[in-house]
Protein backbone atom coordinates (compact mmCIF):
# COMPACT_ATOMS: atom_id res chain seq x y z
CA UNK A 1 0.00 0.00 0.00
CA UNK A 2 1.67 3.20 -1.11
CA UNK A 3 1.16 6.34 0.86
CA UNK A 4 0.66 9.47 -1.22
CA UNK A 5 2.82 12.29 0.14
CA UNK A 6 1.21 14.35 2.84
CA UNK A 7 -2.08 12.59 2.46
CA UNK A 8 -1.80 10.58 5.69
CA UNK A 9 -3.04 7.08 6.24
CA UNK A 10 -4.80 5.09 3.56
CA UNK A 11 -8.18 3.82 4.58
CA UNK A 12 -10.94 1.91 2.96
CA UNK A 13 -13.99 3.03 4.81
CA UNK A 14 -16.64 0.38 4.57
CA UNK A 15 -20.14 -0.03 5.91
CA UNK A 16 -21.80 -3.32 6.66
CA UNK A 17 -25.57 -3.33 7.07
CA UNK A 18 -27.02 -6.45 8.64
CA UNK A 19 -30.48 -6.78 7.13
CA UNK A 20 -31.29 -9.59 9.52
CA UNK A 21 -31.00 -7.07 12.34
CA UNK A 22 -32.68 -4.13 10.61
CA UNK A 23 -36.19 -3.43 11.86
CA UNK A 24 -36.86 -0.56 9.46
CA UNK A 25 -37.29 1.89 12.35
CA UNK A 26 -35.69 4.76 10.36
CA UNK A 27 -33.58 6.00 13.30
CA UNK A 28 -30.66 6.14 10.85
CA UNK A 29 -32.67 8.38 8.53
CA UNK A 30 -33.50 10.77 11.36
CA UNK A 31 -29.93 10.83 12.61
CA UNK A 32 -28.67 11.58 9.12
CA UNK A 33 -31.10 14.50 8.73
CA UNK A 34 -29.83 15.96 12.01
CA UNK A 35 -26.13 15.36 11.44
CA UNK A 36 -25.91 16.51 7.83
CA UNK A 37 -28.24 19.52 7.80
CA UNK A 38 -30.61 17.79 5.42
CA UNK A 39 -33.62 20.05 4.88
CA UNK A 40 -37.14 18.87 5.56
CA UNK A 41 -39.23 19.68 2.51
CA UNK A 42 -42.77 18.91 3.59
CA UNK A 43 -45.49 16.50 2.61
CA UNK A 44 -46.28 17.90 -0.80
CA UNK A 45 -42.71 17.76 -2.07
CA UNK A 46 -42.13 14.31 -0.60
CA UNK A 47 -45.18 12.97 -2.42
CA UNK A 48 -43.53 14.29 -5.61
CA UNK A 49 -40.47 12.19 -4.87
CA UNK A 50 -38.37 15.10 -3.70
CA UNK A 51 -37.50 14.08 -0.15
CA UNK A 52 -33.89 14.98 0.59
CA UNK A 53 -32.85 12.09 2.84
CA UNK A 54 -29.40 10.72 2.13
CA UNK A 55 -30.41 7.31 3.41
CA UNK A 56 -33.81 5.78 2.89
CA UNK A 57 -35.51 2.64 4.10
CA UNK A 58 -36.76 0.86 1.01
CA UNK A 59 -39.72 -1.28 1.84
CA UNK A 60 -40.87 -4.12 -0.35
CA UNK A 61 -43.95 -6.25 0.18
CA UNK A 62 -43.72 -9.94 -0.38
CA UNK A 63 -46.55 -12.44 -0.83
CA UNK A 64 -50.29 -12.01 -1.04
CA UNK A 65 -52.69 -11.00 1.72
CA UNK A 66 -53.04 -12.36 4.40
CA UNK A 67 -49.59 -13.91 4.13
CA UNK A 68 -47.77 -10.63 3.58
CA UNK A 69 -44.28 -9.80 4.71
CA UNK A 70 -42.43 -6.55 4.54
CA UNK A 71 -38.75 -6.44 3.70
CA UNK A 72 -36.52 -3.51 4.47
CA UNK A 73 -33.31 -2.38 2.98
CA UNK A 74 -31.64 0.91 3.93
CA UNK A 75 -30.12 2.38 0.77
CA UNK A 76 -27.55 5.14 0.72
CA UNK A 77 -24.68 6.20 -1.51
CA UNK A 78 -22.63 3.02 -1.98
CA UNK A 79 -19.35 4.97 -2.27
CA UNK A 80 -18.53 2.92 -5.36
CA UNK A 81 -14.95 2.04 -6.17
CA UNK A 82 -15.81 2.50 -9.84
CA UNK A 83 -18.55 5.06 -9.55
CA UNK A 84 -20.68 5.78 -12.64
CA UNK A 85 -21.47 9.26 -11.30
CA UNK A 86 -17.84 10.44 -11.38
CA UNK A 87 -16.78 10.51 -15.05
CA UNK A 88 -19.95 12.23 -16.26
CA UNK A 89 -19.59 15.39 -14.16
CA UNK A 90 -18.23 18.15 -16.42
CA UNK A 91 -16.82 20.23 -13.56
CA UNK A 92 -15.28 17.63 -11.21
CA UNK A 93 -17.93 18.35 -8.57
CA UNK A 94 -17.91 14.66 -7.87
CA UNK A 95 -14.65 12.75 -7.97
CA UNK A 96 -12.87 9.84 -6.37
CA UNK A 97 -10.69 10.12 -3.32
CA UNK A 98 -8.00 7.52 -3.88
CA UNK A 99 -6.80 7.82 -0.29
CA UNK A 100 -10.05 7.14 1.47
CA UNK A 101 -11.90 5.25 -1.26
CA UNK A 102 -14.77 7.66 -1.05
CA UNK A 103 -16.86 9.53 -3.60
CA UNK A 104 -16.38 13.15 -2.83
CA UNK A 105 -19.08 15.66 -3.63
CA UNK A 106 -17.83 19.24 -3.77
CA UNK A 107 -20.91 21.42 -3.35
CA UNK A 108 -19.21 24.62 -4.43
CA UNK A 109 -18.19 23.18 -7.78
CA UNK A 110 -21.58 21.76 -8.68
CA UNK A 111 -23.49 23.58 -11.42
CA UNK A 112 -26.47 21.23 -11.38
CA UNK A 113 -26.37 19.26 -14.62
CA UNK A 114 -27.84 16.29 -12.69
CA UNK A 115 -25.98 13.92 -14.99
CA UNK A 116 -24.48 12.11 -11.97
CA UNK A 117 -27.93 11.44 -10.54
CA UNK A 118 -29.14 9.95 -13.82
CA UNK A 119 -26.15 7.67 -14.01
CA UNK A 120 -26.38 6.40 -10.42
CA UNK A 121 -27.85 2.89 -10.52
CA UNK A 122 -28.77 3.17 -6.83
CA UNK A 123 -30.68 6.46 -7.21
CA UNK A 124 -28.67 7.56 -4.20
CA UNK A 125 -28.30 11.21 -5.13
CA UNK A 126 -30.62 14.03 -4.14
CA UNK A 127 -30.98 17.44 -5.70
CA UNK A 128 -31.74 20.75 -4.05
CA UNK A 129 -34.85 21.67 -6.01
CA UNK A 130 -35.38 24.77 -3.86
CA UNK A 131 -33.26 26.73 -1.41
CA UNK A 132 -33.23 24.88 1.91
CA UNK A 133 -35.52 26.19 4.60
CA UNK A 134 -34.80 25.70 8.30
CA UNK A 135 -37.64 27.52 10.08
CA UNK A 136 -37.18 28.45 13.72
CA UNK A 137 -36.23 26.70 15.92
CA UNK A 138 -34.76 24.14 13.48
CA UNK A 139 -31.91 26.46 12.57
CA UNK A 140 -30.65 26.19 16.15
CA UNK A 141 -29.63 22.59 15.65
CA UNK A 142 -27.73 23.01 12.38
CA UNK A 143 -24.42 21.16 12.48
CA UNK A 144 -21.61 23.74 12.19
CA UNK A 145 -19.28 21.13 10.67
CA UNK A 146 -21.47 20.62 7.61
CA UNK A 147 -22.22 23.06 4.80
CA UNK A 148 -25.82 24.11 4.31
CA UNK A 149 -26.28 23.54 0.59
CA UNK A 150 -27.84 26.10 -1.70
CA UNK A 151 -30.48 25.53 -4.36
CA UNK A 152 -29.58 23.95 -7.67
CA UNK A 153 -26.86 21.57 -6.55
CA UNK A 154 -26.46 17.87 -5.99
CA UNK A 155 -25.75 16.15 -2.70
CA UNK A 156 -25.53 12.66 -1.30
CA UNK A 157 -24.31 10.56 1.60
CA UNK A 158 -20.68 11.35 2.46
CA UNK A 159 -20.13 8.56 5.03
CA UNK A 160 -20.14 11.52 7.47
CA UNK A 161 -16.80 12.71 6.15
CA UNK A 162 -16.70 15.48 8.78
CA UNK A 163 -16.56 12.83 11.50
CA UNK A 164 -13.88 10.89 9.63
CA UNK A 165 -11.77 14.05 9.37
CA UNK A 166 -12.21 14.88 13.04
CA UNK A 167 -11.01 11.48 14.16
CA UNK A 168 -8.16 11.50 11.63
CA UNK A 169 -6.93 14.84 12.88
CA UNK A 170 -7.24 13.87 16.53
CA UNK A 171 -5.28 10.65 15.91
CA UNK A 172 -2.64 12.56 14.01
CA UNK A 173 -2.22 15.04 16.87
CA UNK A 174 -1.88 12.22 19.34
CA UNK A 175 0.44 10.40 16.94
CA UNK A 176 -1.44 7.11 17.03
CA UNK A 177 -3.39 5.05 14.51
CA UNK A 178 -7.16 5.36 14.40
CA UNK A 179 -8.77 2.80 16.67
CA UNK A 180 -11.45 0.51 15.36
CA UNK A 181 -14.91 1.89 16.00
CA UNK A 182 -13.59 5.39 16.60
CA UNK A 183 -15.26 6.70 13.45
CA UNK A 184 -19.00 6.39 13.69
CA UNK A 185 -21.30 7.89 11.09
CA UNK A 186 -24.55 9.25 12.48
CA UNK A 187 -26.64 6.40 11.08
CA UNK A 188 -24.44 3.70 12.65
CA UNK A 189 -24.41 5.55 15.95
CA UNK A 190 -28.18 5.83 16.02
CA UNK A 191 -29.02 2.29 14.99
CA UNK A 192 -30.75 0.66 18.00
CA UNK A 193 -30.03 -2.88 16.85
CA UNK A 194 -26.44 -2.25 15.77
CA UNK A 195 -27.35 -3.32 12.28
CA UNK A 196 -24.92 -0.79 10.80
CA UNK A 197 -21.23 -1.43 11.31
CA UNK A 198 -18.64 1.03 10.05
CA UNK A 199 -14.89 0.80 9.87
CA UNK A 200 -11.70 0.45 7.87
CA UNK A 201 -11.57 -2.64 5.69
CA UNK A 202 -7.78 -2.33 5.40
CA UNK A 203 -7.44 -2.98 9.14
CA UNK A 204 -7.70 -6.79 9.27
CA UNK A 205 -8.64 -6.79 12.96
CA UNK A 206 -11.55 -4.38 12.62
CA UNK A 207 -15.08 -5.48 13.28
CA UNK A 208 -16.10 -4.47 9.79
CA UNK A 209 -13.38 -6.62 8.20
CA UNK A 210 -14.56 -9.54 10.27
CA UNK A 211 -18.25 -9.30 9.37
CA UNK A 212 -17.44 -8.47 5.75
CA UNK A 213 -16.12 -12.00 5.43
CA UNK A 214 -19.52 -13.37 6.42
CA UNK A 215 -21.11 -15.83 4.03
CA UNK A 216 -24.31 -13.83 4.35
CA UNK A 217 -22.73 -10.87 2.60
CA UNK A 218 -23.74 -9.39 -0.76
CA UNK A 219 -23.48 -6.06 -2.50
CA UNK A 220 -26.23 -4.16 -4.19
CA UNK A 221 -26.41 -4.61 -7.98
CA UNK A 222 -22.99 -6.19 -7.76
CA UNK A 223 -23.10 -7.40 -11.38
CA UNK A 224 -22.76 -3.80 -12.61
CA UNK A 225 -19.16 -3.77 -11.45
CA UNK A 226 -19.44 -0.56 -9.50
CA UNK A 227 -17.53 -2.02 -6.53
CA UNK A 228 -19.70 -0.64 -3.74
CA UNK A 229 -18.23 0.03 -0.30
CA UNK A 230 -21.47 -0.96 1.41
CA UNK A 231 -21.91 -4.64 2.19
CA UNK A 232 -25.30 -6.04 3.09
CA UNK A 233 -25.73 -9.16 5.20
CA UNK A 234 -28.74 -11.32 4.66
CA UNK A 235 -29.42 -14.93 5.57
CA UNK A 236 -32.46 -16.90 6.59
CA UNK A 237 -35.79 -15.18 6.53
CA UNK A 238 -36.90 -11.78 7.78
CA UNK A 239 -35.73 -10.81 11.25
CA UNK A 240 -33.17 -13.56 10.98
CA UNK A 241 -35.76 -16.28 11.56
Amino acid sequence: MTKPKGEGEQHQWTMVIDLDKCTGCAACVTACYAENNVPVVGEEEVSMGRHMGWIRIERYWEGEYPDVRARFIPVLCQQCGKAPCEPVCPVFATYHSEVEHLNIQVYNRCIGTRFCANNCPYIARVFNWFAPDFPEPLHEQLNPDVTVRSRGIMEKCTFCIQRIRQVEEKAKMEERPIADGEVQPACAQACPTDAIIFGDLLDPNSKVAEVARSRRGFKLLEDLGTEPAVIYLKGGDIYGV
Binding site: R50, V126, A131
Partner: peptide, 10 residues
Protein backbone atom coordinates in the same frame (compact mmCIF):
# COMPACT_ATOMS: atom_id res chain seq x y z
CA UNK B 1 -35.03 26.96 -8.03
CA UNK B 2 -35.39 24.02 -10.39
CA UNK B 3 -38.27 22.79 -8.24
CA UNK B 4 -40.71 24.91 -10.24
CA UNK B 5 -40.19 22.40 -13.05
CA UNK B 6 -41.90 19.03 -12.81
CA UNK B 7 -38.72 17.01 -12.65
CA UNK B 8 -38.21 14.85 -9.60
CA UNK B 9 -36.27 11.85 -8.47
CA UNK B 10 -35.66 9.62 -10.50
Amino acid sequence: GMGVAGIRRP
